[in-house]
Write a protein that binds this DNA or RNA. Structure first.
Length: 509
RNA sequence: UGGCCCAUGGUGUAACGGUAGCACAGCAGAUUUUGGUUCUGUUUGUCAGGGUUCGAAUCCUUGUGGGCCAACCA
């Protein structure tokens, strides 16, 4: 039954009252709250939330008007009969006996419907329009059906409830909505929307249809998303892999970035599938300016600086955000045993690799230049440690070494690093348009979530609270998850940094 | 095989009937103590055929392609 009427304040600069045209069905207050939350998630304060159920009496009175005008009748046929009588898009419908009932009789019948004299589904009120119309929605559409159901706002007052088409235009009209915005599939409904308003002679709201925003590598329909949730392919509606507002917020997308994305996408009438790359661009653009930089090592590789004194600790200054000097600096502990990212070392590097390799030099960001002198391996031949020599006069900010190195690598002091859980997300589907597949679930990406339970982070990262954004230097943007506990932070990777090297590797095959 | 909606680079989206522009992506380069950021340059487009017009992405028409339309759902 028609329910909550979303009325988010879409854009202040829009002159006429404009509203999102959609009603929701749901149990006690859930949807109204959900809509409000969604608006807030996008950074809006809902202007107000309105309820179609507030108009039930008016809607009923208007139905009576229609009946009296001979434009509506009570039909006792079964749903199957009615469907058959409607014909098909190429075959006109045929009228039944009830279509000729007099207005007076219909009035009495409709009243009995309202009074609860009939059981559920015993009959319906139908508009009398045109059974031969090429627009199926005009072939005497249902206006009211009987449902002896308790309504969370109107209680047991009604046992007949209006259908969508009978509720929507009139509700818009009551609220003096000038532009009622909806998606393309409602185009055929517009004729009925207009018909109701015209027959009633009420405020002429108008409906405008636009294409829904689709994203590649995911699905957008509520039906499909529900399946993902119910069948456990994701952990819930706000699983950071989902394309829902709550999930996106949890993953670390800011309201500003989502709105910027929507702005760049634009609105039009043609079907579209937008590249998630644009969304990623928008969140990087936003977070680059506001996220504090922190060091984190996801897959640690131990580095021993052989010529650095054992037990010595130095505190080296590094910037919190080079894009915003106002955010100041912090100090990082430097010592003889460090961790770097496994990806930042290769024993046999390919061309153009300018990170660490035997005999190679690299700058430890905000610290010293080191040179790899040897590699330690276990019995199986796996690299367990990398031994390096540091250049004492290459200290960041006071480098007199004259050395020029191409690679810069982030690092953590082994003795100071703390453990944190980091969740890495990848696209939920392996194909661009899963909805076009025979079975969209066949194309689910089995590696859409990778949990790194023992990532290493700066000690300062232990103090974070849910919703905080960071850039883990050279890795990507991360957001503290709601699963975090004191001293046990969990980070979601919102998006990686652009990675020119990954592209180069791909090119080299 | 009825009706309706849509069609502009890879993806989106602009252009009173008058020079097809913007963004993302791509490519090339510069800068860089994040292979990030920033900056510079650059490849690629009006679905097809007719018609109207001095002039068509825009108007008309035919075709092609895609989408939508039957629920006691919204």
């Amino acid at each position: 039954m028609p329910e909550f009427r979303a009325c988010p304040k879409i854009q202040r600069q829009v002159q006429p009252p404009l509203r999102r045209h959609q009603s929701y069905e749901g149990r006690a207050g859930v949807c109204g709250q959900h809509l409000s939350r969604m608006s807030v998630g996008l950074g809006f304060e809902p202007d107000k939330v309105l309820y179609a159920s507030d108009y039930f009496q008016q809607l009923y009175d208007w139905a009576v008007v229609l009946v009296k005008k001979g434009l509506a009748y009570v039909d006792f046929s079964s749903p199957e009969e009615i469907a058959t009588q409607k014909g098909s898009p190429t075959v006109p419908g045929t009228p039944n006996q009830y279509r000729n009932t007099s207005p007076e009789e219909n009035l009495a019948l409709f009243e009995r419907m309202k009074n609860g004299e009939y059981p559920d589904g015993h009959c319906v009120l139908r508009a009398k329009i045109d059974l031969a119309s090429p627009n199926m929605h005009l072939r005497d559409p249902y206006l009211y059906r009987i449902k002896h159901a308790h309504h969370h706002r109107t209680g047991d007052k009604w046992c007949i409830y209006p259908m969508y088409d009978w509720a929507h235009g009139q509700s818009d009209s009551i609220e003096q909505i000038t532009h009622s915005v909806c998606t393309l599939e409602f185009i055929p409904h517009r004729a009925l929307y207009d018909w109701c308003i015209e027959q009633l002679g009420i405020y002429p709201s108008r409906q405008y249809e636009f294409a829904r925003l689709n994203l590649n590598y995911t699905v957008m329909s509520k039906r499909k998303l529900l399946q993902l949730v119910n069948e456990g392919h994701v952990r819930g509606w706000d699983d950071p892999r989902m394309p829902t507002i709550s999930a996106m917020r949890r993953r670390g997308f800011t309201p500003e970035s989502i709105r910027e994305f929507a702005k760049r996408v634009g609105v039009a009438k043609r079907e579209n599938i937008i590249d998630v790359g644009l969304l990623e661009f928008c969140i990087r653009e936003d977070l680059n300016k506001r996220a504090l930089r922190r060091f984190a090592v996801l897959r640690p590789l131990k580095v021993v600086v052989t010529n650095y004194p054992e037990g010595q600790v130095e505190w080296l200054e590094t910037e919190n955000n080079p894009e915003d000097p106002g955010t100041g600096t912090r100090n990082l502990a430097f010592s003889r045993e460090l961790y770097i990212e496994q990806d930042d070392f290769m024993e046999n590097p390919p061309p153009k690799y300018f990170r660490l390799y035997p005999g190679g030099m690299v700058r430890l960001k905000s610290a010293y230049i080191i040179e790899c002198t040897s590699v330690a391996k276990d019995a199986a031949g796996n690299i367990t440690e990398v031994h390096c020599r540091y250049v004492p006069e290459s200290r960041s900010g006071q480098d007199t070494s004259g050395l020029k190195v191409k690679g810069v690598v982030h690092w953590l002091s082994a003795a100071h690093a703390q453990v944190a859980e980091v969740r890495l997300y990848d696209r939920l589907f392996q194909v661009e348009d899963p909805a076009a597949e025979d079975d969209f679930k066949q194309s689910i990406n089995p590696h859409s979530l990778e949990v790194v339970e023992t990532a290493l982070v700066e000690p300062a990262l232990l103090e974070t609270t849910a919703g905080e954004h960071f850039q883990f230097t050279r890795l990507g943007y991360f957001c503290t998850d709601t699963d975090s506990a004191p001293g046990k932070p969990v980070f979601n990777r919102t998006v990686t940094l652009k990675d020119a090297w990954a592209k180069e590797v791909k090119k080299q095959g």
